[in-house]
Structure formats: structure tokens, C-alpha cells
Simulated scan of single mutants.
Amino acid sequence: MLPKLRFALLFAALASLAGASSARAADGFQTQAPSAILVDYETGTILFEKDADRRIAPGTLAKVMTADVVFSQLKAGKIALDTPFTVSVNAWRRGGGPSGGAAMFAEVNKPAPVGELLAGMLVVSGNDAAIALAEGVGGTETEFSQQMTERAKAIGMANSEFRNATGFADPGQFSTARDLSVLAQHVIRTYPDYYPVFARTSIEWSRIKQRNRNVLLDAGIGADGLQIGWVKDVGYHALGSAVQNGQRLIVVVLAAKTEKERLEEAKKLLEWGFQSFRQRVIFTADQEVGRAQVFGGASGTVGLVGSRPVTVLTPRSGNERITARVVYNGPLLAPVTKGTQVGRLEVTRGQTKVLEMPLYTQEDVPVGSLTDRALDGGLTLMGDSVRDLAKRALAKIHK
């Protein structure tokens, strides 16, 4: 018997949120940015998206992925902030002063501590610092970029590939607004001790002082980190995080036509998000959100629960239709162990999927009796509904 993908729509639990319009239609919100996404950090709710899965060269935003790899090494204790990495001739020539691009101006063949290289890369987009970090961690930038792609896949960036640590143009390097929002959430949540480096106001190295290049930090919207960038023939990018009244939003704007448009559209998205939505709990912690069928078990189904409350943000201006469905490969094969991840919950607002979270089994289901297993096997070909009716009838007889 081959497992099948199962879906269960959960209209009843969400009936109180049903309405007539989508968020964008209700509020009339639009953005000039070709690709953008706005995400509530706490709940993971997508408040707005526009062509968010379009593959685009990330440019300097790739340095956030570089930072993630370095942060993971720091957290694992493999390196420390004071670990010295030598700035190679390659890093100096391709990314330092001779390159004419953004640089920390680290001295060639001289050591620099990891903590300062991170600041040079994230505060002033230093390409020399990015290459030095890549070579220090990976041996070569090529090896390091493979680690970047592997980590990207591991944290859920399914539509991203990396070929270098700097974001220099490469036809094989791309990401999406959605993936970059996932990266931002991961960095903020996983590395709270290192995230503040993004907001450092300035750095000074080789007697050269430079201010933070991220203009979002000074836009009066509560921004506290991540990156901006530019890619020739593509446009201006922004990946930002901002906090107002205890709520954090993640914004991504890709391929804006000008620096002004990048700033204005990122700011507009954040302001709209903070002003337009309220938090709604649709399932409490440990509340059963659905049931999965079980083959060969003492019970024909098992309850599914999330690991936290299921919360989405909905427009303050009015109700809208919210639907959810449970997705899993089933039926599950007995025995089933409590706490096993077997599926996911997908929540949709209008036509937009706003939340996806894993679901876990609520209890153990041991292997059933010979009668249970024979009944499951014999009735499988007759369909799920027939099998369920037969098992319920048999249970009544046994009582």
C-alpha cells in the first residue's frame, strides 16, 4: 500500500474569521517594488507578498547568508569573535581598496579578528571582510559557498543557491524575497547574541571610519538590522527588520528602480503592516487541529497538534476568509509514537498562504489486534470511508 497525500479542511474552527475580502483588496495596498514580502516575525504570518518566489540575484544581501554560516561556527564553539583570520591577497585585491567597491580596508596579509570582520561585512558591506571570513571558515570561498547553500536548504530556503560570500554577480547565484525573509527570521531567532552587530552605527579600521550603510536604520520606523544592496541591471534591494510596540516585522524589497524607491517602498510596507493588522489565535497550544488516519493500529486515527498556538494576523479594517488544512502522507503505519512530526498545517487568507507549521501526533497508537489489521488490509481497496464505518461498527459489537 502506497501512502497518499491527505488533506483536511478546517472550516468550522475558523468560521468566526470568515468574511468577504482579501487583505490587499480590503486595504487597496500596493507596492512599486517588482518583488516584495512582509512577514510578522512572531507568528510567521505573511501580511503581503508580490512575486515573492521570483529568482533574483541577491547582491549584497548574500552577506547575510555568509553571516549565518559564521554565526553557526561561533555558536558551535569552532571559532570565537577574537579568532584571527588573515586577509589574503585574494581578499584584498578582489574585495579591498584596489577593487573600488565597498570595503573594510583590511590590510593585506595581516590578521583581523572574526568579530571585526563581521562588523566590516555587515555594517559597511566590506567585500574584503566577506572573502576573508569565507576563506577562514571554508578554506576557499568556493568551499564556503557550498556551505552557504547547504545551510540555506537546511533552514528552509528552498529556492536559493550561493556561489560566493560577497554577492558578486554570478549566473548561478540567486534567491527570492520569500527565502530571504526566512533567512532574516532564522538569524534573529537563532543568534540573538550576534544579531546586534547589524545595527552598529560605524566601524573604524586602518584609521578609516565608516558609517553604517543601511539607510533603513535611520528611517524612523524602528529598524534594527540586516542589509541593503544593489545589483547592476537588476536594481536596489532591502532586507530589513523593524520593531514597534513589541511587534517585529520582516520586510524584503527586491529590484527597486532607485535608492529612493527602495527606501520608500520598504518604509511604506512596514508602516502599513504595523498599522493595519491585529493578532488572532485560531488554535490554542496543544489543541487538536485535525486527525490523521492510521493503518494497522488499535485506533483508526490519531490526533494532530502543533508545538505552539496557531496565531495569524488579520486586517483591522474588517474580517476576511481564513481557511486551514492539514496535509500529511497517510495513512500512517502503526505503531505511531506520540510527538512524531507527521504533517503540517497550512493557513490561507484569501488566496495567500500566510502560515505553515509542523504537526505532531497527540498520542501513541500501538499495533492493533489481528482483527484490526485484517480489517484495515481487507477494506483498504474499498476506500477510507467504508473502512472507517466498518471499524466503528466492529467496535460497537465488541462493546
Score class of each variant (00 low, 15 high):
271 E>H: 10
374 A>C: 10
285 A>N: 08
121 M>D: 13
334 A>M: 02
287 Q>S: 13
382 M>S: 14
259 E>A: 12
343 G>N: 00
174 F>Q: 06
32 Q>C: 08
36 A>M: 05
300 G>Y: 14
142 T>K: 15
265 E>Y: 00
43 T>W: 01
157 M>F: 03
78 K>M: 09
24 R>A: 15
246 G>A: 07
26 A>Y: 03
145 S>W: 00
152 A>N: 00
59 G>P: 03
295 F>T: 03
50 K>E: 03
133 L>Q: 07
302 V>T: 05
349 R>L: 11
276 S>K: 08
263 L>N: 10
176 T>F: 01
359 L>M: 09
186 H>A: 09
121 M>W: 04
350 G>M: 00
32 Q>A: 15
249 L>P: 02
162 F>P: 05
332 L>P: 02
298 A>G: 11
22 S>H: 01
187 V>F: 01
155 I>S: 04
183 L>E: 01
192 P>G: 09
63 K>N: 09
5 L>T: 12
23 A>I: 08
37 I>N: 00
127 N>T: 04
272 W>G: 11
380 T>P: 05
290 G>Y: 02
169 A>Q: 13
384 D>A: 14
193 D>Y: 07
51 D>A: 15
207 R>E: 14
365 V>W: 03
333 L>C: 10
311 T>H: 09
255 A>I: 02
264 E>A: 14
2 L>Y: 15
150 E>K: 12
158 A>T: 14
7 F>E: 14
386 V>T: 13
176 T>M: 10
150 E>T: 09
140 T>V: 03
1 M>T: 12
397 I>M: 14
375 L>K: 04
156 G>P: 04
32 Q>Y: 05
32 Q>F: 09
32 Q>P: 02
26 A>I: 06
310 V>H: 00
100 G>L: 04
343 G>I: 02
311 T>A: 15
335 P>T: 04
343 G>R: 01
70 V>C: 11
207 R>F: 12
246 G>P: 03
16 S>A: 10
387 R>N: 15
336 V>H: 01
240 G>V: 05
135 E>M: 04
277 F>K: 05
235 G>K: 05
150 E>Y: 05
345 L>P: 00
151 R>W: 02
200 R>I: 09
34 P>M: 14
332 L>D: 02
8 A>E: 14
106 A>N: 00
120 G>N: 07
320 E>S: 08
243 V>T: 11
248 R>Y: 05
32 Q>K: 14
141 E>F: 00
299 S>R: 13
212 N>C: 12
86 T>H: 08
251 V>H: 15
77 G>T: 02
84 P>E: 07
222 G>M: 12
276 S>L: 07
219 A>F: 07
193 D>E: 14
226 L>P: 04
322 I>L: 13
120 G>C: 08
327 V>F: 01
320 E>P: 08
97 G>A: 15
149 T>S: 05
202 S>H: 14
187 V>S: 03
